[in-house]
Design a protein around this nucleic acid. Structure first.
Length: 422
RNA sequence: GGAGAGGUCGCAUAGUCCGGUCUAGUGCGCGCGACUCGAAAUCGCGUGUGGGCGCAAGUCCACCGGGGGUUCAAAUCCCUCCCUCUCCGCCA
């Protein structure tokens, strides 16, 4: 949620930030208008309430048979009519203002490069050299079925297009990767969490997926239960409504969850393999930190995600997203992409974002620097560590051998209790 | 799913039957101060959140699980929803 005070006090700065995102910024004016209306109506309302409360108290102090009593009662009645009208007005304006604010994206950091879309994201580093293959490296959609570890037909039989089944060593490999990733992040200082995979609408709103991305979410209309599209959603609200102790920050969490997303199925794009589906697994890192530390924490978070790539010994690169591609909630985002020689593309395996106080405002997560100090909003950060299907793709394609077998990466051999999938 | 009991200012509780003196009492905790060489004990004062107006001091409004209603006035009365606990049933 956007800070109304920032818009009120520095509207030009906000307009400029929106412009960098490719938004014309007209809603800033709509917000300023609604805010002014709200405050003026609210002042009036509170004055009337004050008068009404005073009269009520007078009546309370009177004797039951006081001749003035009826006149006072009627005076209060008149004021109440005005209160009713003002309440309607305030509620209407407040609702309008909330809707406008709920759809305001975050302001990108000053060092985020300007750009119109994903073609203008900037590669900040590339690590590891692509392996040289004697043969043309096969894509995972050929490798997996050939080894009997990836079964598209049965996935489609069970759940339809875009679903698949991992079988035998394929299923074990994914479980090993999850376990290993969690262990790596534990060692980096994160606390492991097991979370609900279905959450309330308010929780989805708090992380910024609602109202804008309603169409991408699965939910049960009868129960107010929304399938999580990422562990970021429940983690954002883990401390919703709480006032944290500033001395205990940062709080670092890591959680494994499945993720459910209604993807737009466009023919010809990402249709093959397991790169994109309605259901996938992910290990997610999340931080609650002091405002002054969030920029540094983003670097740590990115580094913690990169460590997974390095320890798997898979080539990867890091991009900083430009203003035109950065997510709704984010101030700054790094994407990490692994090289997949079979599909011949860079796969986004992680997205690490500093969202500042954006989600903390929506979820109302605050802290105090010391006892008695004013409450402030925490800053939050989230980063995949990592997304499973694409990590699986990268492992399969980078570690394939001439005979179609797949070497288990060194880091995973103890977890898999095998060194080659054949 | 059935029956019952509850949700009050960090925690624990009072208040709810009989609406106004509740700007919610008390204890604990916490903060400041007094006493003390220091501490404990004791004593005094203070101690919620959000919002409006204001340079500020301050002041006003709202909040007793959520929403709605009755009333001049609601923690208190009415309706409704949610949650928690106990017992029973069912169940991986």
């Amino acid at each position: 949620m956007f800070d109304i005070k920032l818009i009120r006090e520095q509207p030009d700065r906000v307009r400029e930030a929106l412009r960098r995102r490719g938004d014309e910024g007209a809603r800033v004016d709509a917000i300023l208008t609604a805010d002014a209306e709200r405050r003026s109506a609210l002042s009036e309302l509170e004055t009337r309430r004050n008068q009404r409360n005073a009269i009520s108290k007078e009546i309370g102090r009177m004797k039951p048979d006081d001749p003035q009593r009826e006149a006072k009662r009627l005076a209060a009645l008149t004021i109440n009519q005005q209160i009713d009208l003002l309440e309607l007005k305030v509620n209407e304006v407040q609702t309008r203002l909330n809707e406008l604010l709920a759809e305001m994206p975050n302001v990108p950091d000053a060092d985020v490069p300007f750009g119109k879309d994903d073609s203008e994201n900037v590669v900040v580093k590339t690590m590891g050299a692509p392996r040289q293959f004697d043969i043309e490296p096969a894509p995972h959609w050929d490798l997996g079925p050939a080894l009997g570890i990836l079964d598209f037909e049965r996935g489609i039989k069970l759940a339809g297009s875009r679903f698949y089944v991992l079988s035998g060593a394929g299923a074990r490999l994914q479980r090993a990767v999850i376990q290993w990733m969690l262990d790596v992040h534990l060692a980096q200082g994160y606390r492991e969490m097991y979370l609900p995979f279905m959450v309330k609408e308010q929780v989805v709103f708090a992380s910024g997926q609602l109202p804008k991305f309603r169409d991408n979410l699965y939910h049960d209309v009868e129960r107010d239960a929304w399938m999580v599209p990422t562990a970021e959603v429940p983690l954002t609200s883990l401390h919703a409504g709480e006032i944290l102790d500033g001395a205990q920050l940062p709080l670092n969490y890591v959680a494994y969850t499945p993720c459910f997303r209604k993807e737009a199925l466009s023919a010809g794009k990402d249709v093959r393999g397991i790169k994109r589906g309605f259901q996938f697994d992910k290990v997610e890192m999340y931080k609650f930190c002091l405002p002054e530390n969030s920029e540094a924490e983003l670097e740590t978070l990115r580094e913690n995600a990169e460590e997974i790539c390095r320890r798997l010994d898979i080539p990867y690169r890091v991009k900083v997203l430009c203003t035109g591609d950065i997510g709704f909630c984010a101030r700054k985002t790094y994407d990490i992409e692994m090289w997949a020689p079979g599909c011949n593309e860079w796969l986004e395996v992680s997205s690490c974002s500093n969202v500042g106080d954006f989600q903390a405002r929506r979820a109302n997560v605050r802290f105090r620097r010391e006892a008695g100090a004013k409450t402030e909003f925490v800053h939050t950060l989230n980063g995949s560590g990592l997304a499973l299907p694409r990590t699986m793709i990268a492992i399969m394609e980078n570690y394939q051998q001439k005979d179609g077998s797949i070497v288990v990466p060194q880091a995973l051999q103890d977890y898999m209790k095998m060194d080659v999938i054949r």
